[in-house]
């Protein structure tokens, strides 16, 4: 309870700010409407109206929650109006991209640690790749892959992998290099090969680093999948929900998609966190 109290206080403060902002930002439209109709509005009329507009500048929290509830629990999951349906589309791209990104990241890290030429050449490119805005490169990936006849899930997954491989590379390089000189000397006294040192020493030592990277990586994957949906004019997925919402001024829809994405990200990071705790505990490394 002592830990929940500060968290709840912050949540309450955010909600209060949000409601205040909603009243303030939506009131303009309410007054304009009233002026046109020639009606005088009391303060309570303004308050009520700003909470219940169809296309508010800033939807009130309860509107977003209601929309979330209506589009998840009260729609069939196969419906195009179901956020579960759209969430699954984005999630599948996220998971595929995360798998590709993690695999590529680990392989690159192994190369960097074991090969001097790769050490010198790959890392600068990996860093450079992350300095390019993903919004600039995403349409190109989509267009290029489309011309090769690849559409749908894979291009989004590749954009997602593009964002998620980087933290894995950085974390794994650090992790694979984490054994100290003494532990490496010990392997030398056994005349162990590089392969044996890798499997028995470097890889197990890197696990705490890997999991920290995976947490960042999976969140980045989700961002990548959503960004991948934006420039394609996709009609399915959380990104597409945000996009269509912005075309038609459906702010409630945008916000509910945003929240769905945030909840999804929290769940994914949480799952990786549980895996981390279980694995490291079993490995005796959970300090």
């Amino acid at each position: 309870m002592s830990r929940a109290l500060p968290v709840l206080t912050v949540v309450a403060a955010i909600l209060a700010l949000w409601y205040a902002a909603a009243v303030w930002m939506n009131a303009t439209w309410t007054r304009d409407q009233a002026e046109r109709a020639g009606v005088e509005l009391s303060v309570s009329d303004i308050l009520t109206d700003t909470m219940a507009q169809e296309r508010p500048v800033l939807p009130a929290p309860h509107q977003v929650v209601t929309e979330l509830w209506n589009t998840t629990a009260r729609k069939k999951v196969t419906s195009k109006r179901s956020l579960v349906f759209h969430g699954w589309i984005t999630l599948s791209a996220t998971l595929l991209g995360f798998a590709i990104g993690t695999g590529a990241g680990i392989l690159l890290a192994i190369g960097i640690v074991h090969n001097r030429a790769m050490d010198m050449s790959v890392m600068p490119w990996a860093i450079a790749s992350q300095t390019i805005p993903i919004l600039a490169i995403a349409p190109m990936i989509i267009v290029v892959l489309n011309s090769l006849g690849i559409q749908g899930l894979v291009p989004k997954a590749i954009i997602s992998a593009y964002l998620s491989f980087f933290p894995v590379v950085v974390g794994m390089v650090k992790g694979l290099r984490s054994p100290d000189a003494m532990q490496l000397d010990l392997m030398r006294t056994y005349n162990a090969s590089g392969r044996e040192s890798f499997w028995k020493l470097r890889l197990p030592s890197s696990m705490p680093y890997l999991f920290t990277s995976l947490k960042i990586g999976i969140a980045a994957s989700l961002v990548g999948a959503i960004v991948g949906e934006l420039p394609t004019g996709a009609i399915r997925g959380l990104g597409a929900r945000m996009l269509t919402g912005s075309y038609y001024g459906q702010t409630i829809q945008i916000w509910s998609a945003l929240f769905a994405a945030a909840i999804l990200a929290a769940c994914l990071v949480g799952i990786v966190g549980v895996l981390q705790r279980v694995t490291l505990k079993r490995m005796g490394m959970d300090q």
């Binding site: 003494m182 532990q183 000397d185 010990l186 392997m187 006294t189 056994y190 005349n191 162990a192 044996e196 028995k200 020493l201 197990p204 696990m207 490995m283 005796g284 490394m285």
Partner: peptide
């Protein structure tokens, strides 16, 4: 030869028996 370092340097992810098996596996 067998070499003993200043620190025990046991692998935390292996049991004591597992640590002793390390050179034997290699």
């Amino acid at each position: 030869y067998g070499y003993v370092f200043q620190a025990a340097g046991l692998y935390p992810w292996r049991t004591i028996a597992g640590n002793i098996k390390l050179p034997l596996e290699i």
